[in-house]
């Protein structure tokens, strides 16, 4: 660095600085000078950036071929959302494949399906232990298992899927009979089966009943659900599973009746539009202290709701 000629020393700089700021008019000049220098520097920076972009071709490279915005323009209308879909019309339901069981599920009913499918929920541990305990049992013996989660058992195992295929065949053959049977049994009083269980019913009684009502057995009250076969409280899967286990398709009686699990209620497209009521169980949930794992436990003092 021999070539650098220092015109000033740090002492010179310091004394000059104090000279300048002690005099009001020179101090103001200095302030203006600094301000102008900063302004010029900032302006110069922008100019260099633009010059660099153009000279090196970077600007052209970054800009590329701009896509036409027209197809993506936001729709400005009080009747539509930004995509132009009517705010009154429901979106058409789509099917999605359940990542847990690979079965197609209506998208609007996916969450309740997944909860059952994964064996989650408030009673998941209870259900899980019961499932372990019942592992050795005949999976189709519904009577001993007052659970509304039996569908999980039904969905695994080739034996059952074969049976399902058979059922599907039956279903096709007999689909026309459905309405006829239904009209023959129109005088059932849904309230009369309080305390009723499937164990005490004959095969015929069960069938007739399940044409009328949802029939899913409550986890807590052990009672049958007497709402309609389209009741929103229970899922299609629950109803199907229940019918699968209650209406044992191998009994000669049910074969002759031509009634299958698919037939007894549960039309495939019966999903009512999803109404969101995510807080329906808020009370229970809020009492539960969230379980945080390992390091995250430290966060819980902030999150505790109790």
């Amino acid at each position: 660095m021999n070539t650098i000629v220092s015109e000033l020393s740090m002492n010179d700089l310091n004394s000059k600085f104090f000279d300048i700021i002690q005099n009001e008019s020179t101090a103001e000049d200095a302030a203006n000078f600094i301000f102008d220098s900063v302004c010029e520097d900032v302006t110069l920076g922008v100019l260099f950036e633009v010059h660099h972009g153009i000279k090196t071709g970077l600007t052209e490279l970054l800009e590329g071929e701009k896509e036409d915005e027209e197809p993506y323009k936001i729709v400005n209308s009080p009747e539509c959302d930004v995509f132009g879909f009517s705010i009154l019309k429901k979106t058409p339901d789509a099917n999605c494949s359940c990542p847990n069981c690979d079965r197609p599920v209506s998208a609007t009913r996916f969450a309740p399906h997944l909860e059952k499918c994964m064996g989650m929920g408030r009673n998941s541990s209870r259900i899980a232990s019961r499932r372990i305990a019942s592992n050795s049992r005949e999976p189709t013996s519904y009577a001993g298992l007052p659970s509304d989660d039996e569908d999980d058992v039904d969905w695994s195992g080739t034996l059952h899927s074969e049976r399902r295929k058979r059922r599907m065949k039956n279903n096709k053959r007999n689909s026309k009979i459905h309405n006829g049977i239904r009209s023959n049994n129109g005088n059932h009083n849904p309230d009369s089966n309080d305390g009723a269980t499937y164990e005490t019913m004959s095969a015929n009684e069960k069938k007739n009943l399940l044409l009328q009502i949802c029939g899913v057995v409550s986890e807590h009250t052990k009672k049958l659900c007497t709402r309609s076969t389209r009741c929103p409280q229970h899922t299609e899967e629950q109803r199907r599973a229940l019918r699968n286990s209650v209406l044992e398709p191998s009994t000669p009686e049910s074969q002759s009746m031509g009634l299958t699990a698919e037939d007894a209620g549960s039309p495939p497209d019966s999903s009512p539009s999803s109404s969101c009521s995510s807080s329906s169980r808020k009370r229970d949930r809020h009492r539960a202290v969230p379980k945080m794992k390992n390091k995250r436990e430290k966060l819980s003092p902030l999150n505790g709701r109790d």
């Binding site: 969450a111 309740p112 997944l114 909860e115 989650m120 929920g121 408030r122 998941s124 009521s277 995510s278 807080s279 329906s280 169980r281 808020k282 229970d284 949930r285 809020h286 539960a288 969230p290 379980k291």
Partner: peptide, 11 residues
């Protein structure tokens, strides 16, 4: 996140 207690109780 198995501790999440089912869909209808979600916060």
């Amino acid at each position: 996140a198995r501790h999440l207690a089912g869909y209808e109780q979600q916060d």
